[in-house]
Nucleic acid binder design. Sequence first.
DNA 1: GTCTATAACGCGATAGAC
DNA 2: GTCTATCGCGTTATAGAC
Lengths: 211, 211
Amino acid sequence: MSTTGLDRRSRRRQQTIDEILDVSVALMETEGVAALSLSAVARQLGMRPPSLYQYFPSKLAIYDALFQRGSAQIRDAQREARARAPQDQELERGMVAFSRWCMDNQVLTQLLFWRTVPGFTPSPEAFAPAEDMVNDLRSYLQQAVDKGRLHQDATSDEGIALFTSLTAGVLSQQMANEPQATYETGRYMKLMPTVLDMFYLHYRPTRGKEK
Amino acid sequence: MSTTGLDRRSRRRQQTIDEILDVSVALMETEGVAALSLSAVARQLGMRPPSLYQYFPSKLAIYDALFQRGSAQIRDAQREARARAPQDQELERGMVAFSRWCMDNQVLTQLLFWRTVPGFTPSPEAFAPAEDMVNDLRSYLQQAVDKGRLHQDATSDEGIALFTSLTAGVLSQQMANEPQATYETGRYMKLMPTVLDMFYLHYRPTRGKEK
DNA sequence: GTCTATAACGCGATAGAC
DNA sequence: GTCTATCGCGTTATAGAC
């Protein structure tokens, strides 16, 4: 039993796991997030439903794996966009990357931000990347504070809640009312830069006292 | 067969319909919106599942009736709050009434604003009150414009989209992250007045050009 | 050990006959 | 209003193939 044999086997196993997740997302796109059917997944893969249990202990475990995958992806999409961003545009570029990813991955977005699947709550491991996202946001807001572009209050819990509410609002309106649109064509998505401006205006550095 | 007999029968029928809807909401509260089970509804009412089909042709028809009920209720809640509001506070009071209703009726709110039930789309009749809501909003924004409290652009499609995005954002963050809270205690709900201020600031009448 | 299959249980939505 | 029946679901048990 060579080590390459073990590698090959576990590589093949990982490949199957990825296929299950991909097929699940595809089915949820057409049937609805809460309507995922393991039988349908198995059919697509040429398996019988019980075989799926070799890879996931339950249907909720598939949702959890998708949550983890999604939260890591959207965190990284923002990180990469910010890393490439010109000076002082990290917040905006991160927001654009966030929006674009959400529109391109609406099934995962529903899972991440709406939590409407009966009985499903993300495990701590699956949730960790989502916490990274908030911490990233806070540190970039702090940078803007340090440069005198935002009031200190912007990094408070209220500031974070306001920032995420503004983006979540545009996003949820877009997804509920025009789900077939893209980031570029969405009627609501056009408001993303607007609400960022509003945030900067609300937490402007020191033209009088805040609040 | 007297007419009062007919009345009594149809009144009894309407009563059963209302009971079915009430029980459905209660079950969705504990099990999840998409997990509504007709068998469970029937059990609660001391019926057999097929009997429900005397009142609703399908499970989706129950969702549709709930959508209609909900959209009419939330429209009326706002109308009553605005009718009681002091001069120039109609917008704010309507927004508060909206928020409070949503937190008190989260199941219906999910149905109305997230549309995550597989296969369900509201019928035109069920959707009509939701359209009233937007028209109401536009007319109160127009009043504020007429009084010089808002820029004319606030009543544009973009203005309406911005207003609804701001409120939907606070709401969706609250429901996703702290669903057990009330309007009074919610960490995000506290931002409702804030985002209204931001809207007024963004569409301030004429301190320089808009946008 | 690893993967897959078949059989079976209990539950659900729904159609039709009574 | 009911009972019966069909179908699909998630899941478990179990047994055979690689």
